[in-house]
Design a protein around this nucleic acid. Structure first.
Lengths: 248, 248
DNA sequence: AAACTTAGTGTAAAATTTACACTTTGATTA
DNA sequence: TAATCAAAGTGTAAATTTTACACTAAGTTT
């Protein structure tokens, strides 16, 4: 069976989601194998970003949210647009064509996709391989392996934007559990910025931002001095473009 | 006659351009009155951003470039994507519907638009009211008047992005003639950032960036000491996300 | 020649950033 | 139970950057 919701689906516009998670060491991206439905004869293990055509009654953000929720069960989450990708040849690689012809009602339609990126707490949910995709993997974000369609380009754009935001907006927390140690946050920054930040300066400056509130709780089960846990506190966040603002 | 190029035009995706220019005092945006073609009976002086549906063989950037060139004659120019706008109700205001029904072959089609913003030297060209739009105006960017469709939203996004870029990337120059005085640049920064920057500090820091080269030429025809003119020099521009980089 | 207008310049105080090493705490092990 | 291990947690001095601020220079007009 080809696509459901045909009458309500826009054949020319899709969304694709770059879903980031942090396991304490590596920044991961959620990738899926394309769903071949009942086309068992096709051999295709290409990884792609989870995505879907948009429906006529939903906004772009809603479509991205639907994809994210369908895959992870997570509802309210950090989800922001990356931009639109519309190269006329973005669907013309061999395997991409094969897949489109097997699954899409209008396999030749020009499709513009709108990229989104999400930051989630990797431990907060179980991956549901239902719906779109049978195989779902958390992949190190430094992958260079070739994804389907133009998804490497979308992923690169997401990483660029994430790096730019990390120093200017309080977004790092979104990847952590509600209570976390400064060390945890520190590792996150090092991993995403691919840098080796000074530990003491990081700690002082991060605390100075006023976005952290200490709790009375400590790490448990570690074979050394347990670290204090903090929570993130929302506060009025003035316009980022204020010249000297640095998030951390 | 309704739209030309119907067979090659994608009814679901458009581009809209926020074209900025600086006249020495105010930052301006180029707005057009919708082209009603031969529908003389319709009364509609709503201003909108210049835009068009995309064609099947062109990339999004190319479509935006086509709109810009068609209107201004300018070819190579700073042109960057703002993002995609796809609210299902973005075309449903009364006058917008009237216009769509008069001009579009599929007036009910869902249209997602991709916003672009351009920075041009306002004096470098003559506006050509040919093609898309009969009436073309440079409007102060602080306008709050209501534009057609969701174009206020697109304009706001463009301004936000421009402000963020101005302090981090060498983009201000794109709005100036090839040779300009530091005062000219200073006014540009004050106008865009809606601030009152210290004149001496601005001068020192701007020169320190290494993007300016002094010429032997000076202002002419001014009733006071003439200012030296500078040119912008391209140099390797390292990744913006370097933590402490400030453009000026 | 005096008045006017904008161009162009320097410095000292304050704030921020950087580099850097030892003590504390709790768990494990000998 | 004392010693060891591993990561947590802390302070300071030097360098750099940012800020605030006022007068002289140059060319035009009156």
């Amino acid at each position: 069976m080809k696509e459901k919701f045909l009458n309500q689906t826009n054949p020319n516009v899709s969304v694709d989601c770059v879903i980031f998670g942090f396991d304490g060491v590596e920044l991961k991206v959620l990738l899926v194998q394309r769903d071949l439905q009942d086309n068992l004869e096709i051999q295709d293990d290409t990884l792609v970003l989870p995505g879907d055509l948009i429906r006529d009654n939903e906004d772009l953000d809603e479509a991205a949210s639907r994809v994210l929720t369908g895959l992870t069960g997570i509802r309210s989450v950090f989800l922001e647009q990356i931009g639109a990708f519309g190269n006329p040849n973005r669907l013309s690689k061999g395997k991409d064509r094969t897949w489109l012809e097997a699954v899409r009602l209008k396999p030749d339609a020009r499709v513009i996709t709108v990229g989104y990126f999400a930051l989630i707490n990797i431990k907060n949910y179980k991956i549901k391989p239902a719906g779109f995709a049978k195989h779902v993997v958390w992949h190190d974000y430094k992958v260079v392996e070739e994804l389907g369609f133009d998804h490497n380009e979308i992923l690169d754009a997401a990483i660029r934007i994430l790096r730019n935001k990390l120093y200017r907006e309080p977004v790092g927390f979104k990847l952590l559990p509600r209570k976390f140690s400064l060390h945890h946050l520190y590792c996150l920054y090092n991993e995403i910025m691919d840098a080796e930040i000074d530990r003491r300066n990081f700690r002082r400056r991060m605390l100075k931002t006023g976005f952290l509130k200490e709790t009375d709780e400590f790490q448990e089960g570690v074979p050394h001095k347990p670290a204090r846990l903090y929570t993130f506190v929302k506060k009025e966040f003035e316009n980022v473009s204020r010249k000297n603002f640095k998030f951390y």
